[in-house]
């Protein structure tokens, strides 16, 4: 039996000034898939992930999630379901816990699940971190810790499609492997999929269930 189709993008195009990055790009994502984007630097991997989250206007083409257009979902809803994790994670002032709680104050997310401390501490344990991490000052985290914060902040919202832009770039190898295992487990727990980029070809081999090359 075919796994359900989650995301379908058709005929996407991205141009920066006169430079055409990619065009006529079609992409289908089914539940459980881990799609690795493979391309040289500057080929527009980040821009493709941003386009799928509709953080930039589409220059051409259409995207549907479970057969529905972004407009019919509503854009904030769309982004909470097709969630983009930036290469440069940011936190606001306050503790890690306050940062993890803050998305739940958005109108879109109010009344959907909400803050669950045990879930987060479980994930922290899987990543080899103490629950004391929650009390850390978020503005003093290292680059790697900030990436973990951003990852947990996204995972707790249970998006349908997770868009990961170099998710382990600032992490050591052991933690990277732990993140991959956590993601595999999280993906298996629902009808979910992930698209990711990485400069680490080993990671792509380890983690991707399928790859997509970006070429003109």
């Amino acid at each position: 039996m075919d796994r359900p189709l989650l995301l379908r993008a058709e005929q996407l195009k991205r141009q920066l000034g006169n430079r055409l990055l990619w065009s006529q790009l079609d992409l289908e994502l089914r539940a459980g898939e881990r799609l690795g984007l493979v391309a040289t630097s500057g080929a527009g991997k980040t821009l493709l992930l941003r386009a799928l989250a509709l953080l930039d206007p589409l220059q051409a083409g259409t995207i549907h999630l479970r057969g529905r257009s972004p407009a019919s979902w509503g854009l904030p809803r769309w982004r909470s379901l097709v969630l983009y994790l930036t290469q440069r994670p940011v936190a606001h002032g306050g503790t890690v816990e306050e940062n993890l709680r803050s998305p739940w104050t958005f109108q879109e997310l109010r009344g959907r699940g909400g803050w669950r401390r045990e879930r987060i501490t479980g994930w922290l344990e899987a990543l080899g971190r103490d629950p004391a991490f929650l009390a850390y000052d978020a503005e003093r985290l290292s680059g790697g810790e900030l990436q973990l914060l951003a990852l947990l902040r996204a995972l707790q919202l249970d998006p349908t499609v997770l868009l990961l832009d170099e998710p382990t770039a600032s992490l050591d190898r052991d933690t990277s492997v732990a993140v991959e295992a956590l993601l595999v487990e999280w993906l298996a727990a629902g009808s979910r999929a992930a698209v990711f980029t990485s400069h680490d070809s080993e990671q792509i081999q380890r983690f991707a269930s399928r790859t997509l090359g970006l070429a003109r």
């Binding site: 904030p76 982004r79 909470s80 969630l83 930036t86 940011v90 958005f106 879109e108 902040r153 919202l157």
Partner: peptide, 16 residues
Amino acid sequence: RDRVETALALGASRWE
């Protein structure tokens, strides 16, 4: 910019 777009990416409205 990064902070604003992080909020947007998590499902915030433009005003939020």
